[in-house]
Amino acid sequence: MSDGRSRIQEEWQTFWLAISFLTRIPMLIKIDYSQRLMNNCSMYFPLVGLLLGLIYAGAYVLLTYTFSPLVSVLLVMVLHLWLTGAFHEDGLADSVDALGGGYTLDDKLRIMKDSRIGAYGTIALVMALALKAALLIDSRLTWLALMVAPCVSRLTPLLLMRFLPYITAPDTSKTKPVASGFPTQRLLLAILFTAFVVVIAAAGWDPDLFLTSVIATFGVACLWGGYLKTQLGGYTGDTLGACVVLSELIVLVGLA
């Protein structure tokens, strides 16, 4: 019995660790940090995405009582950037700067770690945010897109973490603890959870959501992962953030 309670307590801490890694939501419990917890918390990324999606969808519905759909979408996007600290968007900008401006592997990794943003990164970030706003406005059910897209898109980095090597210098990377030794069993659980959410949403509101989600996760993982393999030999923390943005945009394209 005590083993069962300690396992539940460990999973509860692991879940909150995933929240603290992906968002700025204050930690409400004390966590016994360990390599095991850091390795295992990635399984909860889609669940954290769903919780964020519920917040975004609820905020959008409330905002539309006062503002136009466009203003409501933009305000929800501001909320998203604040809650996540623009975590994934920063990864997109750094990745595009590095892949667009670096010629050698060392150059690309050096540019990726540079805190300054370049022309490639600025253009990619502006276009991604503008496209996201436009697609949300064009979505058949904007609240559904806001709810499901964050969940689906946060499965994609798990696939890259499992099947590609981690190539950033481990002593300087903030993603090293999460990127080390991600178990296959936990990946399968994350896939099953995401599939369950998508099936429920597709059955209730939009049948096209299932195919769109498959393309957004496995398609982006294969194409982006293959590109990273040829350019870098593996993935970095920034490229994981970039794949979340790319995956989310594919979901929104399917729902527009």
Results as ranks from 00 to 15, higher is better:
R7H: 14
S115Y: 02
A169I: 05
S72W: 01
A149D: 03
A124K: 10
V178T: 15
L136D: 11
G91P: 01
V220G: 12
G225P: 01
L22K: 07
T142Q: 13
I215T: 08
V245D: 03
A169H: 12
L159T: 08
V76T: 11
G241R: 04
A221G: 05
L129H: 05
A134P: 08
L146M: 15
N39L: 04
I200M: 11
L75P: 10
S72R: 05
E11C: 01
L129P: 05
M161F: 02
D238F: 02
V197D: 09
L74D: 08
L99D: 04
K176G: 00
L159K: 03
G91D: 02
L99Y: 04
T212Y: 00
F21Q: 12
K108H: 15
A57R: 10
D206A: 01
T156Q: 05
T23A: 15
A124H: 13
T14S: 09
V76G: 08
L155P: 02
T142W: 08
L105H: 05
P165T: 09
A57P: 04
V199W: 06
I191V: 05
R7W: 15
G49I: 06
V220W: 08
S2M: 13
A203Y: 07
M147T: 13
T168L: 07
D208Y: 03
L232E: 09
F210W: 05
Y235L: 05
L211I: 11
M147Y: 07
Y235D: 05
Y166S: 05
I191D: 00
I31M: 04
L129W: 06
L47G: 06
M112E: 09
F87V: 03
V61H: 14
M112W: 03
W82N: 13
Y56R: 08
L75Q: 05
V48L: 11
S115T: 06
G102Y: 06
S139D: 13
K229D: 08
Y44N: 15
F15S: 04
T122Q: 14
L74N: 11
R116G: 09
V48A: 13
M161K: 01
I31Y: 03
V152M: 00
P165M: 12
W82I: 14
G53E: 12
I117F: 10
M27D: 11
F67T: 03
D114T: 02
D32K: 11
C151N: 11
I55V: 15
A18I: 11
I8T: 12
L54R: 13
V126W: 10
S68Q: 09
